[in-house]
Design a protein around this nucleic acid. Structure first.
Lengths: 338, 338
DNA sequence: TTGTACGCGTTATCAC
DNA sequence: GTGATAACGCGTACAA
């Protein structure tokens, strides 16, 4: 019955050592693949490891090494990010790719409540990760401030307004919005509106600003409708509202592809032809763009690069290298919708 | 210059103790909110904590407590899961909600390469998590086996074929597919095909099986096209192929809503009316379903519940309770597409 | 090349 | 109520 008493205890290095008739030090060396171990010792240890079923305790290892080999990725506002943002998947995979290559483990943490927020902050502070990338922090995000005050190496995807001196990687939403609006105007439209979304985020603000800049004298505040989220539903609703205000509208800039898709549905249900009657452009070049009929003219943003560069920024800080903020290039994808 | 020498060292409990003129034990007690601490001591400790800037080292804490308070969620095949599966977001949030309520930290781990696979396995084995939920393991998944052999409390979302005695939570894909196909047949269709996908997964296999069962004598193997992924693109392609094979087709079961959306595009481009000429049904009741014109009749599956129950299954194991496999109910959402 | 001993920062169990 | 002290499992100088 004694054997059952110890059935749950995990084997430690000590167990391996005595099973192999060697010392802990030697076992540790072969486990970590270090030099200065005789072939005999190595074989004996490996055999003993198998025999006692040893697996390394990373917690103890991390404690003594004073590092975890993990990088946290914080998903804030998970509802809009997970359900409406077409980029999050690419960001995750991009970050994972560079971290994996550097032998770091990416761990994604969701903040979906105040409780989550505290727990995640503890997680980051507790030494469980060596750094963090924060996705989609909005203005004066409490987690953003926490991370900054804590001194954990971190980088933001997107530029959180109001938090100075924080490394980030972003695109120039304003410039991109201005570029595609200008292109739309270039097709001869004069009465163009915008379906603006997420004005509490830098992306939303900047896209609107870019639109204004491109419109110049043509800008009419009455032709801008505002919604909280980048969704298909708000695109549909926004377009209907715009048509109500200005039936002879001949162009529209939707703040995202999903929004544009909703707007196209509204346009088509109202009997209008795209792009003959009204031209429409979006933002993201997500999978929505190719599904529309006609296909959507939009702004392409390098989502996977956002993740990659953010991860690189964190690694740079860990290594004591400079980690300057970075603005990635976007490009206009011109297709049939305008 | 001495002050700069120590600038990076974190404050420990010892630092707090000496700053407060008390012992480590007392400091530990107030940090953990235990009883048997005098009001004076509590105040002194709290002041000292602020003064020296102490934050708890969770790694050391986890080592002595022999648990981490974290549950891993493994995202396998991240490309199809993050880009094509409408359910992953709900699963994540569902799992996070129940774990958060139980004061556990959900950490999501992506496996996107052989290297990732090994690193994640180490992560799970190393004591960094107390349990794991695995999403979308396919047949004889190496990670699935690893988890099982390792003895970490775990639960699967979806039923991995070929791995016995593993707790899982799933839906009955076959029964649901049979139900909605039967409903489609009930509208008087006789020449109905299927766009089947992901036959290397249990979901793909079972949906096809359910379709067959419902069709009975009407089943024609020539009216089933097969594709690797549940995507819009394959839906488009599959529908075109089906129409080529059988121009007078009057019904189709698409293996997912995204597939159905693609198929509807193909149908409409071919000049056919939905549902007059051909009726179509999908699977998932994802956001696709309401975006289609007409709206899609489909199978609703409780994605958030999948995440919740899986998390509960893991917690049950940690607490030594039974964790029986569970099959969740689905329902048919009947709308305008058939 | 191998073994020894100490330290990583906490918590838990004792006496006091 | 409080303060020593022994774990927790591992890495690593240092000695041998």
């Amino acid at each position: 019955m004694e054997s059952t008493r110890t059935r749950t205890r995990r084997a430690t290095i000590n167990d391996v050592a005595s099973a192999a008739g060697l010392s802990r030090g030697t076992v540790s060396r072969v486990v970590n693949g270090e030099r200065y171990v005789s072939e005999d010792a190595k074989l004996a240890v490996e055999e003993a490891i198998l025999r006692v079923g040893y697996v390394r305790n990373s917690v103890a290892r991390n404690l003594v090494r004073q590092k975890s080999g993990a990088i946290g990725l914080i998903i804030h506002e998970p509802h809009s990010l997970l359900f409406e943002d077409p980029n999050i998947g690419s960001i995750l995979l991009g970050a994972n790719a560079v971290l994996s290559a550097a032998d770091y483990q990416l761990v994604s943490l969701i903040i979906d409540s105040e409780r989550d927020s505290r727990r995640v902050a503890d997680y980051l502070q507790g030494g469980l990760v060596d750094g963090a990338v924060i996705v989609s922090a909005r203005a004066s995000d409490p987690i953003a401030l926490a991370v900054k005050n804590l001194g954990v190496p971190a980088a933001f995807v997107g530029h959180p307004p109001g938090i100075p001196d924080i490394p980030y990687v972003a695109i120039d939403n304003a410039a991109a919005a201005e570029a595609i609006t200008a292109r739309l105007l270039g097709t001869g439209r004069t009465r163009v509106g915008m379906i603006a979304c997420a004005l509490d985020r830098d992306s939303g603000q900047d896209r609107l600003a870019g639109f204004k800049a491109a419109m110049g004298d043509l800008f009419d505040p009455g032709l801008v409708v505002e919604y909280p989220l980048y969704t298909y539903g708000f695109g549909l609703e926004g377009m209907q509202e715009l048509l109500r205000r200005r039936p002879d509208l001949d162009g529209v800039f939707a703040a995202s592809d999903a929004v544009a898709a909703g707007a196209m549905t509204a346009l088509q249900e109202s009997g209008r032809q795209i792009p003959a009657d009204v031209g429409i452009v979006g933002f993201d070049d997500s999978s929505w763009a190719l599904r529309c009929r006609p296909q959507l003219s939009t702004v392409r943003q390098p989502a996977d690069l956002l993740g990659k560069r953010a991860a690189e920024l964190v690694l740079a800080q860990i290594r004591g290298l400079p980690s300057p903020a970075e603005v990635l290039e976007t490009s206009v994808m011109w297709r049939g919708s305008a």
